Structures are given as structure tokens and as C-alpha cells.
Amino acid sequence: MTSSDEAALQKHRVHLRPVTLGDAAPAALHLLPCDVLVSQSAPVGRFFTPAIRQGSDGLEVSFRGRSLRGEEVAVPPGLVGYVMVTEEKLIGKQDFSGGSENGSQEEEREPVEPPEPLERDFDRFIGATASFSRFTLWGLETIPGPDAKVRGALTWPSLAAAIHAQVPED
């Protein structure tokens, strides 16, 4: 039997704000081999402004006195990566249409009702702040190998397409 708090933790709905996808500016991303034990904003640019050097076997940089080796990794063709952030919860009617906000203030549209009523404590809204088609994957002392988890994640779209493709009849 679960308490009401445990049940509340298991019930979440995430709503994407489609209009933010078109507004997401391209960004240079770095995937570092570390864990950050805090879930909040941090001035990363203040602490990580890499002076990347091209070494004999890939990219080289040092971060807080440690040597990092890396390489550029491309997002699979036909896909785009987005940096997403959780927005503050907004109560009431939300615009889930994904339409552009190019209209003037005199010409306001009525927002479209969401498919389900919003529940104040369970709904989360996310929006894109940046987009990317490639990023730099860093490893501590060595370039991450083919068994890196991110490489497995990037091969999944092509594997899923092959699994679900129509099999030709002979």
C-alpha cells in the first residue's frame, strides 16, 4: 500500500511548449564526465570556457587541472537535439496549439484548451532554450569509447527504424 505522497510522486504530466522549439537558438554543447549533485542553475560559462586544442588522437582540454580528451559527435541525420528547461507552472488556460505568436495585441486569439484538465500539482511545462546538431563528448584522460552510454542512445533511432520497417515479401 502506498501513501498519498508516494502516489503523488508517481503521477506527473509533462507539457511541451511547441512554440519554443522554433525559437531555440543554436548552441555549442559539451558533455563532461562528471556528476553535479545539485539541480539548479549554475554559471557554467564562468567556470568552463575551454581552450580546446587539437591533439594527435582528438580534442584536448583541461578542466580544473584534469586532462579531458574528446571528439565532436553528430546527432543522427533527420534529428535535432534541444536543451529543455522546466518552466514555472502556469494555472488556467494554456496555449497548446503550437501556433506562432506573431499576431498583434489587437488581434489576440483565444487559447486552445488542453486535452485534459490541468492539475495544479501534477503538471510540468517544458520549453526549449537552445538547439544543437552536434556536441563535444569528453572523457577523463581518454576519448570515450564506443561503449559510452550516449553513443548507444544515438544509435537507437536507426535501430528502431530498422526494427519497425516493413519486411519485403519474397
Rank of each mutant, 00 (worst) to 15 (best):
T20V: 09
A24W: 03
P26W: 01
P26M: 01
A27Q: 01
A28H: 09
H30M: 00
H30F: 01
L31R: 01
D35V: 14
V36H: 13
L37M: 05
L37F: 06
V38N: 14
S39A: 14
T49D: 13
R53N: 15
R53Q: 15
Q54M: 02
G55H: 03
S56Y: 15
S56N: 15
D57E: 09
D57R: 11
D57K: 10
L59K: 11
E60M: 08
V61P: 10
S62T: 12
S62W: 04
F63I: 01
R64C: 09
S67E: 08
V73H: 02
A74Y: 11
P76S: 07
P77G: 09
G78Y: 12
G78L: 13
L79Q: 11
G81A: 04
Y82A: 00
M84N: 06
V85R: 11
E88M: 08
D95Q: 12
D95E: 14
G98H: 01
S100D: 06
S100L: 04
S100R: 05
N102P: 02
G103F: 12
S104K: 06
Q105V: 04
Q105N: 04
E108M: 06
R109E: 09
R109Y: 01
E110D: 07
P111F: 05
E113C: 07
P114I: 03
P115F: 14
P117N: 06
P117D: 05
